[in-house]
């Protein structure tokens, strides 16, 4: 999977690059609108992460060109401007999703995966890890080939874990993924705790391994390896 990151902040690009490479993506970078334009016209990308505030223009300009060159390419808008109109404009022009700075890398990873999944595999792909299989289009979960009944939140939580397996996810990142800013953090950590407890119990009934590990009270890690 090849991803083009169009973003002018080198630190951020480098950080994203390292992270996404660890997740098995091929990364190319462009710091300017013109540079990005050239790359889009020369190469094919599965997904383009597009910052809107570029030094030589607004990233929105690129969307029609991307769509013209390769309609199947996914586009995720990356912006600090959380103005609704900018986002809406981007989505209307053909972007698949948006993510607002500052974001959790795990969140970006989840968005990338779900965008790619929708585009490339017509939503039919199955995610598999250890004893767990998820059919994302049917929203169906199998543990040890037995269907697992999950609430909507538990399903979203599991999917988020599956996209970011073997990586510690902070509670903040999980809360933001599940509820955005609809919830006050003082409340939310208890909710997370309860949901995770339930999810863990449900999986453990069918699988011999504990997948969800609590990490120093900061977050959780989804892994089939036992933690110490």
């Amino acid at each position: 999977m090849k991803i083009l990151i169009v973003e002018d902040n080198r630190h951020l690009v480098q950080d994203m690059q390292e992270f996404l490479q660890e997740n098995g993506f091929l990364i190319e970078k462009a710091g300017f609108l013109e540079e990005a334009r050239q790359k889009i016209n020369l190469y094919k990308y599965d997904l383009i992460i597009l910052d809107l505030g570029l030094p030589d223009g607004n990233g929105l300009e690129l969307i029609p060109e991307i769509k013209r060159n390769d309609p199947s390419a996914g586009i995720i808008i990356l912006t600090a401007k959380d103005t609704v109109s900018e986002k809406v404009k981007g989505l209307e022009m053909g972007a698949d999703d948006y993510i607002t700075k500052p974001f959790h890398k795990a969140e970006l990873n989840a968005r990338i995966n779900s965008t790619l999944r929708r585009g490339k595999f017509d939503g039919n792909s199955a995610l598999e890890y250890g004893h767990i299989k998820i059919n994302t289009s049917a929203r169906q979960v199998l543990v040890n080939n037995t269907p697992l009944n999950l609430t909507k939140i538990e399903y979203d939580l599991l999917l988020y874990f599956m996209y970011n397996k073997n990586r510690m996810l902070t509670k903040e990142s999980i809360v933001e993924h599940l509820w955005g800013d609809r919830i006050d953090e003082s409340d939310s950590f208890n909710f997370i705790y309860n949901h995770i407890k339930n999810l863990r119990k449900k999986i453990q009934k069918l699988a011999p391994v504990n997948y969800i590990h609590s990490m120093y009270g900061i977050g959780y890690k989804f892994s089939d390896k036992e933690q110490d």
Binding site: H11, M16, H104
Partner: peptide, 12 residues
């Protein structure tokens, strides 16, 4: 927001 984003990611 961008530096904050970087700080947060590095901290992660």
């Amino acid at each position: 927001q961008t530096p904050l984003s970087i700080i947060r990611n590095k901290t992660e």
